[in-house]
């Protein structure tokens, strides 16, 4: 069956009455977003539906994820913006989209990732949160403490 929403009104993922839709997830990244969701104990019992490899005009193919909860943790949204800038989060209420948020790479990463430099003070002192600021290059971030610059992909995210 076609999954093109214009040619076929029946999607594999059912509509949800209340919750959030993660749309425009680049194909293949859906499981990673699910993994981030699953790391939050408060979301452990929420109903989650995942769809993979939908055709998408914008991306070619995309994944999609729906979760039936009333709120999302702020830090989860910030984590997802790191793994999938470009993802759209839609808040659903009464089966309607009531708010849309397009995720972008943040200018700063605060206490969400570990510095890769083993000699950085954030890895050697207790209770010191690593902080990064966007460096000149596209997805590079500079550690505010040791000043090393890392590609975003090199950073290990801190899950709750």
């Amino acid at each position: 069956m076609s999954t093109d929403k214009n040619s076929n009104p029946v999607l594999h993922i059912p509509k949800i009455e209340e919750g959030f839709v993660f749309d425009h997830i680049p194909a293949g990244l859906g499981p990673r977003v699910l993994e981030l969701l699953r790391s939050y104990p408060e979301l452990a019992e929420a109903v989650v539906t995942v769809g993979l490899n939908y055709r998408s005009g914008k991306l070619g193919s995309k994944d999609m994820l729906k979760i039936e909860v009333t709120d999302l943790p702020e830090s989860l949204i910030r984590l997802i913006s790191l793994v999938g800038p470009g993802i759209t989060i839609k808040k659903i209420s009464g089966f309607e989209v009531v708010r849309k948020l397009g995720l972008e790479l943040p200018d700063a990463i605060d206490n969400l990732a570990r510095c890769r430099n083993p000699n950085c003070v954030t890895n050697t002192e207790r209770h010191v949160a690593a902080r990064f600021e966007r460096s000149g290059k596209a997805a590079s971030y500079r550690c505010l403490f040791c000043e090393r610059v890392f590609d975003l992909k090199e950073l290990e995210l801190l899950l709750p």
Partner: peptide, 9 residues
């Protein structure tokens, strides 16, 4: 200090 970032901290 031998660790990077110590002065900033």
């Amino acid at each position: 200090h031998p660790k990077e970032g110590t002065a900033r901290l």
